Amino acid sequence: DRMTSQEAACFPDIISGPQQTQKVFLFIRNRTLQLWLDNPKIQLTFEATLQQLEAPYNSDTVLVHRVHSYLERHGLINF
């Protein structure tokens, strides 16, 4: 699994950072998509996403918020 070119453009700090940071991003992105796909008729809020993310992935709330906002803005969740 890899970041898309659009994700890389929107998250230059992640793509240029350590490999582990990219893996954390990918986990948060994929898990958020999975959470929404589990029940697409219900809006997936940032707060609900954060509550359902497993530790330690829920510890970087800023990154979780950025990923959630990106997915929502680009019509990948909550459409």
Rank of each mutant, 00 (worst) to 15 (best):
T32W: 02
S5C: 13
S59D: 11
V64P: 00
L37A: 14
N78T: 00
N58A: 08
R66Y: 01
S16V: 07
S5M: 15
H65V: 03
E7W: 00
E7P: 00
T61H: 09
S5L: 13
N58W: 04
P56Y: 04
H68A: 00
L76W: 09
Q52L: 09
Q34N: 05
E72D: 12
I14H: 01
F79K: 15
Q43T: 13
I14Y: 02
Q20P: 10
L26I: 12
Y70N: 02
T32G: 03
K41A: 14
Q51Y: 10
S16A: 13
I28F: 00
I14Q: 01
H65Q: 15
V64K: 04
R31Q: 11
A9H: 06
F27N: 10
D38N: 13
C10Y: 08
D60Q: 12
L71F: 02
A48L: 09
Y57H: 06
I42L: 12
C10A: 14
V64S: 02
E47G: 08
H74G: 10
R73Y: 07
L53H: 02
G75K: 13
Q22S: 06
R73T: 13
T61S: 15
T45S: 11
R29E: 00
Q43I: 11
P56N: 04
K23W: 08
P56T: 05
L37P: 00
L63G: 01
T21Q: 14
F79W: 07
D1W: 05
I28W: 00
N30K: 07
D60M: 11
L53N: 02
V67E: 01
I14V: 12
L50C: 08
Y57V: 07
D1A: 06
T49V: 15
A8M: 11
Q6P: 06
P40K: 08
A48R: 14
Q6F: 07
H65E: 15
L53P: 00
P18I: 09
P40N: 05
E7D: 11
R73G: 15
K23G: 10
I42E: 11
K41F: 09
I14G: 00
H68F: 12
I42W: 08
L53K: 02
T49R: 00
N39M: 06
N30T: 07
L63F: 07
L76Y: 10
T4H: 04
T21Y: 11
D60E: 09
S69G: 13
P56F: 03
L76G: 05
R31D: 01
S16T: 11
E54D: 09
F79N: 07
L63N: 01
T45W: 01
D13Y: 02
S16D: 07
C10M: 06
Q43L: 12
R2M: 14
V62F: 06
W36A: 08
W36R: 02
Y57E: 04
I42H: 10
T45Q: 04
P56I: 03
L50V: 11
D13A: 03
A48N: 07
Q22G: 05
G75W: 06
T32E: 00
E72H: 11
F25T: 02
Q43N: 08
V67Y: 01
R31Y: 08
E47S: 13
N39D: 09
I28E: 02
W36M: 04
Q34C: 06
Q43W: 11
D1G: 08
E47D: 14
S69T: 12
P40E: 06
S59H: 15
D13L: 03
F79Q: 15
F27S: 08
E47V: 07
A55D: 15
I28D: 00
L50E: 05
Q22R: 11
L50A: 06
D38S: 13
L33Q: 10
V67P: 00
Y57P: 02
I15A: 11
W36I: 00
V24I: 09
L35C: 07
L50M: 10
V64D: 01
N30W: 03
L37S: 14
G75T: 04
H68C: 02
K23V: 09
E54Y: 12
K41Y: 11
I28L: 11
L53V: 11
E7L: 00
E7I: 04
I77N: 02
L63S: 01
G75V: 04
T21W: 10
V24M: 15
Y70A: 03
K23H: 10
T32S: 08
V24A: 15
A55M: 09
H65I: 03
R31M: 15
T32N: 03
S16L: 11
C10Q: 14
R2V: 04
Q43V: 13
P12I: 05
Q19G: 12
V64F: 02
N30L: 02
C10F: 12
L44S: 03
E72L: 04
F27P: 00
N78Q: 02
L53S: 01
I77F: 02
I42Y: 09
I77K: 01
I14D: 02
T21C: 12
S5W: 12
I28Q: 00
Q43P: 15
R66A: 07
N78V: 00
Q43G: 08
L26V: 09
D13Q: 04
P40T: 12
Y57W: 14
S5F: 11
S69N: 11
E54M: 09
P18H: 10
F25S: 02
S5K: 10
H68M: 04
M3W: 07
T21N: 15
F27G: 14
L50Q: 06
H68K: 00
I15W: 15
H65D: 07
Q51D: 10
N78L: 03
A55E: 14
L35E: 04
Q51H: 12
A8H: 09
H74V: 14
F25E: 01
V24P: 05
T49F: 04
G75D: 12
S5Y: 10
V62H: 13
Q19I: 15
L33Y: 07
N58P: 04
I15H: 12
R66E: 05
F46K: 06
R29T: 01
Q51G: 12
L37E: 13
I14S: 01
L37W: 10
T45F: 00
L71N: 00
F25Q: 00
L35P: 01
L53Q: 02
I42R: 11
A8I: 08
N58K: 08
P12E: 05
A9N: 14
P40Y: 04
L50S: 04
W36E: 01
W36K: 02
L71S: 02
Q20I: 15
R31F: 11
H68I: 03
K23S: 14
I15E: 11
C10K: 07
C10L: 09
Q19F: 08
Y70S: 03
F27Q: 14
A8K: 13
E7G: 00
N30P: 00
K23C: 08
N39T: 06
D13G: 04
H65T: 06
N30I: 03
Q6C: 11
E47M: 07
A8T: 09
K41H: 14
M3G: 03
F46N: 04
F11Y: 02
